[in-house]
Write a protein that binds this DNA or RNA. Structure first.
Lengths: 190, 190
DNA sequence: GTCTATAAAGCGATAGAC
DNA sequence: GTCTATCGCTTTATAGAC
């Protein structure tokens, strides 16, 4: 007899979307209940720490996804170019051309930054570091790799902001394509 | 006999900081009262529409500041390079090296995007358009000007996100300096 | 114009039945 | 594991004194 919700991890995707759509403060337990199909009792059974624990779990799940799909390939791909290509493809798909916000970026900008500071910092630091490493392996100088890594990760976050503000997914795709092109030119220029 | 608060406009700066620090949902009337030094009665006297009207007024004030200090110089400066230089200087100062968030960008990412969609869209659209115009006047091709305008405005927003996430103001200043450098190279290359 | 008091609703969180 | 009922608090907003 299959249960709809077998374990805590099953509700994390819906939980994440709810936080993305409404923000941490805006995602009330009523909205979270509607999004997950669970009553407050069930939610507090899975997350005794309440909303804060829900957000922490969502951040950890997002972090795990990026670690697996983006950061690790950047660090470990046979060819650094392949890891970088994968980063752009995964990113474009994950953020749905800017229609889906980056919850970690939202938390960084928002009022809850201090509450989840370490998770936010670690996520972006590891992204920058992994890209830095890949660019170095691709032949960039240490300074060049570091600067470009920072610019690219920042550029992706800015692309989400601008695409949402102008309500135009092509803005996101266009910026990402040009960032990608810029990296390729850098690598061939060195 | 001087009053501390003579008119509505006098509380907008404190109101803006309160929204920046706590977000729209997070800025409760209690916090707003503390930030402005006004009781609820006075606040509703100045803003009969409540929090939504306060946020609208703050957005309008921010919009006016950027229109005056950034967009208009970009459009009207004798030399486009001077307008662009002024944009970077005003932006660096206004966002305090990324320690101060862009409220319009926050609203774009956050749950209140739809509520203030038109103000958010107009702010970013006019920024991009003004920079587009300046780059065109500086000698860039229409395509080149458009693309760079989008990339620069997005890049600035991303720099704020990343600087806040990594809690490192130098990230913001570094990204802005490289964006600025990139524009100068583009103009001399054409 | 500024205040306090208060209304009505919604909030996160808990308790306890099943 | 899931639910409903409820607690205690905070919220936005209003009313009315001064």
């Amino acid at each position: 007899m299959p249960r709809i919700v077998a374990e805590r991890a099953d509700v994390l995707p819906a939980l994440g979307e709810c936080f993305r759509e409404h923000g941490f403060e805006g995602a009330s337990l009523a909205l979270i209940g509607a999004a997950t199909g669970l009553g407050k009792g069930s939610l507090y059974h899975f997350f005794p720490g309440g909303k804060a624990e829900m957000a922490t779990a969502v951040l950890a799940e997002i972090d795990g996804w990026f670690e697996r799909e983006v950061f690790a390939p950047l660090r470990e791909s046979e060819s650094p170019a392949a890891g970088i290509a994968r980063m752009f493809e995964a990113t474009e798909a994950y953020f749905r051309s800017g229609r889906r916000v980056c919850l970690v970026g939202c938390f960084a900008l928002g009022e809850v930054r201090d509450r989840f500071a370490e998770a936010v910092r670690s996520y972006f630091q590891r992204w920058v570091d992994a890209l830095d490493l890949a660019l170095g392996r691709a032949g960039a100088s240490p300074d060049e790799a570091r600067r470009h890594a920072v610019d690219v990760v920042g550029g992706i976050q800015g692309a989400i902001v601008l695409a949402r503000a102008l309500d135009d997914p092509e803005i996101f795709s266009g910026i990402l394509a040009r960032i990608r092109q810029g990296l390729m030119e850098m690598k061939t220029a060195s």
